[in-house]
Design a protein around this nucleic acid. Structure first.
Lengths: 101, 101
DNA sequence: TTTATATATCGCGATATTGCGAAATATATA
DNA sequence: TATATATTTCGCAATATCGCGATATATAAA
């Protein structure tokens, strides 16, 4: 992970809503039990919108930020986008921060 | 460490110059070997100014941000301010992040 | 007291981030 | 095709951050 990538990752974490989303995605079965689609696909963007209370477009931007940083991935199924954590990336980031800081 | 404190800490880290300063302070004997005062006091603000290449006021603000976040402390001796890392706080922060993220 | 040195604070312009509604895009259904 | 649903992208206003020079403050030395 380059210095620029690390920078993008930390900036992605520097917003409480984005950290909260990452945290929700850690236990989808706890936070998104009411989702119509199987949670194995990931969590549907709209469900995340609801949970934040922010506008749909704002949350979409937050999700894009987390994805650009590499923390989450999305897969499109039908008209829905499902998001899930990239655990390896997150672990790698934490390791890097533990060394660097 | 409260959620608001964690937020302040991550924001403090979300600027490459501030992370670089933190890193320099990890090994003052490597990065500030030319300091006139004993490094045991900490690193003098002016030496940090020089190393960044930014203006004195800008660096002073960065140091204040790091200090508000708890990552560093300053002690004033004569007309100088000496900065040093708060290792316990940094460790605590990393532990918290490892859990939370 | 005056002058020099070190640092912090102030004010301001430039830039980045955030949040929104509206519009565009994509997919599914009638 | 037309309509409904889900999401992304666009444009814009509000706010926050950054970096600077100028000024204020604090200490030390002449």
């Amino acid at each position: 992970m380059s210095s620029a990538e690390l920078d993008e990752m930390i900036k992605a974490l520097s917003h409480p809503v984005r950290r909260e989303i990452l945290n929700w995605l850690k236990q989808p079965e706890v936070y998104f039990a009411d989702q119509d689609h199987p949670l194995s696909l990931g969590v549907c963007a709209g469900k995340i919108d609801q949970k934040t209370g922010l506008s749909q477009s704002t949350v979409s931007a937050h999700l894009a930020t987390l994805q650009r940083a590499g923390f989450i991935s999305s897969k499109k199924v039908g008209q829905w986008s499902f998001f899930s954590r990239n655990e390896e990336v997150i672990q790698h980031f934490l390791t890097r921060l533990n060394e660097q800081l």
